[in-house]
Nucleic acid binder design. Structure first.
Lengths: 255, 255
DNA sequence: CGGCTATTTGAGGTACCTCAACGCCCGTGG
DNA sequence: CCACGGGCGTTGAGGTACCTCAAATAGCCG
């Protein structure tokens, strides 16, 4: 059920644990002592691999576990009565996927894997215990929740008040910027693992219009497409179309 | 600087404190012992009144206080490079306005009073101390943050995937529903203290189109306008146009 | 009453949507 | 290795929900 490494007082990964990337992600936004890091790395979890487009959370669930995204991408979405889908958050490797259920009874949205993913399923009870005994870990959890909230507000602005071209460019810019935390080369450009339909559901557009907007961005040299692959140009190039300011990502918070 | 009432062990308001409505609001989403309630009511604060359209928080601020909205309405907003404004949250009486600065260095959005407001300015340090000694209060703070995040996601869906009419109706429905916590009669209809321009900035529309959509809603009997006043019909009537399901407001959480 | 702001209405424009057809990638199985 | 099928991407044509601009009206506050 739970394979756990021995409790480590230092920050080198516990043998056998895969939570390394999770701790690195938290460290990008919060300070944690080596002891804190050791406690996190020693969390019990169940390892699971999922293919793409698999449901991870369902609206109405009462969850007892917090999945942590070890690799791959996942997204939260909501559905309108007419079947319209809005993707409301994108989660990247290292991200915890459901801290919320620590404190709310009911899940208010759906969640799916975007690519094949590796998950560490951590019992909420274990996380809760850790948060109670270690203030700085509780804090790091909160910071993650708050930063996701801030990103959500920026998406509200993006969908509500930007035209398709800067809207798309802004999203791509944000994604590249966020990926820098786990991939130092991301500022030179990233592979975007989203179909045009998924992009449309993030941006509040139709797939057809995303297609045309991508074409424009490509002609402007801001993205490169080959076959079904989509790759962004460097952040600096994207930003010229994007009205992008990274303040809302709170990368200054760890300093 | 700070007028504080004496610490009370029971839940009846501390003499002289105005934080009663704040505690009632937290109680709607979290369980708190009478001792917890007493501690909250005994929080030190500076009382302040503000007119409408006054700035409460500015993007880039490093805040040391958490304003609590004792009466009146306030909203968070963000600006696009072209001057477009998106209102990303509406806060109602009893709501804390900046728990976020407990854990993040920099404010990522602006905040203004919508109507005349009364504020209790609580030092963040006092809140932090309370959260550290009382787990259930820390929890209540978190629940408030999470519920606001959930509302933000619903707004993403609203702006991204609903047409103007259900979009407007959904927002009005939500507002009436939320106001029930502090005003039991709200389900019969509420006064909406927003100009059409502000409604437009919530909904990602133009004021002109909001005007036309309101007209349609009025002809359908879902809102009443007289002069510049806007009043909603009963929630049940609004809901017929709104695709509204209150799950995301997490009112089940206190139970 | 005067002046400001919010609302209302009209006319014309456009960014994005809908529908539909076609073609290309790519995984699968023969 | 090739043939096949299905999903995703691409393109075109036509439609529409919403926007822009502009002017007139109405409410509100001194």
């Amino acid at each position: 059920m739970t394979e756990r490494g021995p409790t480590l007082p230092c920050a080198s990964p516990a043998p056998g644990t895969k939570l390394d990337i999770f701790v690195r992600k938290l460290l990008a936004y919060s300070r944690l002592s080596t002891a804190d890091q050791g406690e996190l790395l020693a969390l019990p979890y169940q390892y699971r691999e999922l293919g793409p487009n698999m449901t991870i959370l369902r609206e109405g669930d009462h969850s007892q576990i917090c999945p942590i995204l070890l690799s791959g991408f996942a997204f939260r979405y909501k559905l309108a009565a007419d079947g319209g889908r809005q993707i409301v958050a994108l989660r990247i490797p290292g991200d915890p996927l459901d801290f919320q259920s620590l404190y709310l009874h009911t899940v208010d949205h759906h969640m799916q894997s975007l690519t094949p993913v590796e998950l560490a399923l951590v019992p909420l009870a274990a996380l809760e215990r850790l948060a109670e005994t270690r203030r700085s870990i509780a804090r790091a959890i909160l910071v993650d929740i708050l930063v996701e909230g801030s990103i959500g507000r920026e998406w509200q602005l993006n969908v509500g008040r930007r035209h398709a071209l800067p809207r798309l460019a802004h999203f791509l810019c944000e994604l590249a910027y966020r990926l820098q935390v786990i991939d130092p080369g991301a500022d030179e450009g990233i592979d975007v693992p989203l179909t045009q339909e998924q992009l449309a559901d993030i941006l509040g557009l139709t797939p057809v219009h995303v297609n045309r907007t991508l074409k424009t961005l490509e002609e402007a040299g801001a993205v490169i497409r080959s076959g079904r692959r989509l790759r962004t140009g460097a952040i600096g190039v994207l930003a010229r179309f994007a009205d992008f300011t990274p303040l809302y990502l709170h990368r200054d918070n760890a300093a």
